[in-house]
Computed example of a mutant assay.
Amino acid sequence: MMTKMIAIKSFLINTVIVSVKPCFADDQEQLLNKGLKLIQFAVMNAIALRKILKKYDKVHECANGMNFKSKLQAKHLDILQSPWLIELVAFCINLNDSDSSLTSDELFGPLSIDLNLTSEGSVLTLVLLGSEKLDCSLICPICLDLVFQPYALSCGHIFCKSCACLAARVLIIEGLKYASSDSKCPVCRESGVYDKPVCMSELGLLLQQRCKEEYKERAIEERKILLKQTKEYWEMQTSHAMGL
């Protein structure tokens, strides 16, 4: 069953890539419908697996099903934990040209996607079948501000790129690929989560379009930090090359 879950997750990621590539050649409405169906398919699979495991425990009078579910979540194989799902949701909202929400009643039933950006908190909410709800916080756990140039670690937690680099003790110009394998997530404290970070470009584009002034100010601040780090980096490299 673990192999099946890995295959489902790989299918989700690969389908996202395949769907995004022809975006300039495909009709926008058709592409949007494909994205919505993929979201519905992914969430319905997650719900079905949950019900199967619950039924298994009821029939066999054990807790093996729930234990297996816990193992999936611990290994970040649950589809609902995948940052690629959030990236796909953001992709659909970007295509939709709507100010706040996106809905569909095709295939598996009603789907509602809402982006709520307020001073109290910013959340991306996905509701399927009118009851299954998935909330994704868009606030960086480090700077406590709206995520800027968002990156997701393999544990699923989302940070600003600069904040994630700071936590991993690497320069922004180097990127998260230079993070040590021992670096831990600032939230869950799990190690090895910097190995395969996800650059959430669609989510970043969505927030940039909806929060233009805030993103403009952050871009200016980030540029100052980047220039400072770049200068310090090359001064250090020069000193090292000269043996100083």
Rank of each mutant, 00 (worst) to 15 (best):
I17C: 09
F148D: 02
C136V: 12
T103S: 12
I79L: 15
A63D: 09
Q237E: 14
E120H: 08
N45P: 08
K216G: 01
L38C: 05
F68K: 00
F11N: 14
S180P: 07
E235G: 08
Q209I: 03
L115V: 12
P150K: 03
S112E: 15
K231E: 13
K9M: 05
S119K: 12
Q209D: 10
L36R: 02
E132L: 04
Y151R: 10
H60R: 07
L80G: 12
C140G: 09
P110D: 03
E221N: 14
I139F: 01
H240D: 12
I172G: 00
A25R: 15
D105K: 13
Q30T: 10
V170W: 05
Y215S: 08
M200N: 04
Q73H: 08
I113R: 01
Y215H: 14
S191P: 00
T15D: 10
E221P: 09
L134C: 11
L88M: 10
E29D: 13
I158C: 08
M5F: 03
L107C: 09
S98R: 06
L117W: 04
Q237D: 04
C160W: 01
Q30D: 11
E61F: 02
A164N: 07
E120G: 02
H76Q: 14
A152T: 02
A48E: 15
L166N: 15
I220A: 04
K184I: 11
E214G: 15
L32H: 01
L146A: 03
L129C: 10
A74Y: 12
E232M: 13
L38H: 02
A179S: 10
E174V: 00
L227H: 08
P197Y: 12
L203F: 08
K228L: 14
I47K: 11
K133R: 15
L111C: 06
L115D: 04
V187G: 04
N96A: 15
K184S: 09
C199A: 15
K58C: 04
I173F: 05
S82I: 00
N96Y: 06
T118V: 07
G204Q: 03
P22T: 13
K9N: 04
M200F: 07
I142H: 06
S183E: 09
Y194I: 14
I172V: 07
R169V: 07
P110C: 01
C92G: 02
Q81R: 02
F41Y: 11
L102C: 06
D105F: 06
V127M: 06
S239C: 12
A164M: 07
K177W: 00
D26G: 00
K34I: 07
L31P: 00
L126H: 05
